[in-house]
Design a protein around this nucleic acid. Structure first.
Length: 202
DNA sequence: GAGTAGATCCTCT
DNA sequence: GAGGATCTACTCA
């Protein structure tokens, strides 16, 4: 079990990083309470040429500033006034690429996740969808900009688990209809057959 | 089971 | 002042 080196995030190919994040463990440790989940769904946001990205057209604001940082930090942002969306910033400084982590399988601290989400029992809705996932892991906007490598509270780990290439599916992203034809791009990666994958079950 | 409306607040124009 | 990288519940069939 090792945390991912910054070189993992700083590669140029955001799609490759998004694909390789599948199967990794996202671990949070707040006040010595540990929760973790295995990533089974991601979406790539490819910088200034991607209409669905906050950084489209090289926009640079106080909200998305952290996307321009070097790879390996978190980008957490509140959507629809309710949902906290957890992203991983990739590539080098000045290139605003990011990967939205959309879903995971609960691994550790399920009791804590149930308490956070107000659910009675563990079912497939616990960490399905970016809003639920970050709620279950206790991630909020004030965790924006944390390093995934140096900080002890928010980490992405590699425990050696690998999905087969045939288990990984690419598809259009969710909830980005406003992006025109860019909404059709296959920038979403998920594990075939997982009940935790968001969107319509196949 | 499928479709739709409502929640709810921060950010940018 | 408007709209968004969403989720849930409720309606109707």
């Amino acid at each position: 079990m090792e945390k991912l080196p910054v070189s993992f995030y700083r590669r140029k190919n955001v799609f490759q990083v998004a694909r390789e994040l599948l199967g990794k463990l996202i671990v949070t440790k707040w006040d010595n309470v540990v929760t973790s989940a295995r990533i089974i769904e991601t979406e790539a946001y490819a910088g200034i040429t991607d209409k669905a990205s906050h950084a489209y057209g090289a926009r640079r604001t106080s909200r998305n500033e952290v996307m321009y940082a070097h790879g390996g930090v978190s980008y957490v942002y509140l959507c629809y006034g309710i949902h906290h969306l957890f992203n991983v910033v990739t590539n080098t400084e000045g290139t605003p690429h990011a990967i939205l982590v959309r879903a995971g399988e609960p691994v550790e601290g399920v009791e804590t996740m149930l308490k956070r989400t107000g659910k009675k029992k563990w079912d497939h809705t616990l960490t399905r969808g970016p809003g639920n996932l970050s709620k279950a892991l206790g991630i909020y906007t004030h965790h924006n900009g944390l390093s995934l490598n140096d900080d002890e509270h928010l980490l992405i780990m590699d425990d050696g688990f690998r999905y087969k290439r045939s288990e990984i599916i690419a598809s259009p992203r969710i909830g980005v209809d406003y992006a025109g034809k860019d909404a059709l791009l296959p920038y979403r990666f998920f594990i075939k057959g997982s009940p935790y994958v968001s969107g319509k079950p196949k």
